[in-house]
């Protein structure tokens, strides 16, 4: 996750990051010991938050699309790693990224039916710069 490596860019802009995963708390605790994060992460094992934010599942057919597999391979070569699917997690559940104001208003969102698609960090940071720019 590039956000983890670039977290300082968020704090410099007086912004925060919150991660949400479908991992149940006991497994989350174990996972965090191996993969500590500089920002909070919360569990949504019943996927209620995922659904409330409009995040759906992909299909096995879409997941096994050669283009998707190619992007996974590319991301692995670029230093990404596939996190193993923990018990209770759904490998077909799609993620997403939502940028919100302090007032909880949505500024931008990035969702895709392709699990390898992620927003460019530059785009997110540019939006934050516009939010915090003095008038």
């Amino acid at each position: 996750m590039k956000v983890k490596q670039s977290y300082e860019e968020f704090t410099k802009r007086r912004a925060q990051v919150i991660a949400i995963a479908m991992t149940a708390p006991p497994l989350m605790t174990v996972w965090l010991k191996e993969n500590p994060l500089p920002f909070p992460i919360f569990s949504d094992p019943e996927l209620k938050a995922y659904r409330a934010f409009g995040l759906q599942k992909t299909s096995l057919l879409k997941l096994l699309n050669p283009l998707v597999i190619g992007r996974y391979v590319k991301q692995i070569f670029e230093g990404g790693k596939i996190r193993r699917i923990l018990p209770g997690e759904d490998p077909l559940q799609l993620g997403g990224d939502f940028l919100v104001t302090q007032a909880k208003t949505l500024i931008a969102s990035w969702t895709s039916s392709d699990p390898t698609r992620q927003p460019e960090l530059f785009t997110i940071l540019s939006l934050l710069d516009q939010l915090t720019k003095p008038e």
Binding site: R13, K104, P115
Partner: peptide, 18 residues
């Protein structure tokens, strides 16, 4: 969730690739 948001926030719903 609202209790956790005190600043502009990026909320990341994790995919399984990190």
């Amino acid at each position: 969730l609202f209790e956790q948001i005190h600043q502009p926030t990026l909320i990341v719903f994790l995919r399984h690739l990190m």
